[in-house]
């Protein structure tokens, strides 16, 4: 009897408890992270961050160098469990959407922070790359997803954050061979 109850605990109760713990902790951490992201994004709103080659028409820019920000994120046990269920019927897996959203926004914020530290006024030609990390333990699926944000950090002539709008935009001239 004792042996049976021990087996029940290890085989059913423990994984279920883990999923419940994961649900509450994961949800708490996610809410906190989203709040943190919103606050930092509000601060960075004026920081020039564009996905194309931007050069203001009224002056020369100075290149500071490559700016990067990266983060490895993973979903919690509860969401993994939900996604597993969702896989049966197919359709949208919301649990995985939020984790990728968190990862991308965090990576961009880190890149912006790196650019600020390096004295840039903006980052141009920003690219986002996502790659899956394989796990050493074969049965456990993925270890996480890495998101990398990178772009060219530039200093604009004159004051910081000048000309952040699309107005006055020109394509840079083709460099002489």
């Amino acid at each position: 009897m004792d042996d049976l109850s021990f087996r029940l605990i290890t085989e059913f109760a423990a994984p279920i408890a883990l999923v419940i713990v994961a649900f509450f902790t994961g949800r708490f951490l996610e809410h906190r992270h989203f709040r943190d992201l919103r606050e930092r994004e509000a601060i960075n709103r004026g920081f020039l961050t564009v996905t194309f080659e931007y050069e203001p028409s009224d002056g020369r820019v100075e290149t500071i160098g490559l700016m990067m920000g990266s983060v490895v994120v993973s979903v919690d046990h509860f969401k993994r469990f939900l996604a597993g269920l969702r896989n049966i019927v197919g359709g949208r897996i919301k649990a995985y959407e939020t984790i990728l959203d968190r990862g991308r926004r965090e990576a961009v914020l880190r890149m912006q922070a790196a650019a600020r530290d390096a004295g840039c006024d903006g980052v141009i030609n920003v690219r986002l790359e996502t790659s899956q990390l394989a796990n050493g333990r074969a049965n456990n699926g993925t270890a996480g997803v890495e998101v990398l944000a990178f772009g060219t950090g530039v200093r604009l002539p004159g004051s910081a954050n000048r000309g952040t709008g699309p107005a006055g935009l020109t394509r840079p001239a083709v460099p002489a061979p």
Partner: peptide, 26 residues
Amino acid sequence: RDIMAGLKNIVGGELKGYTELLEESR
């Protein structure tokens, strides 16, 4: 790092050990 990340995997979110590892490697 693998063990720590395995624990962190339960609650989800950032796996700092891996972030640092990949940053160094890059």
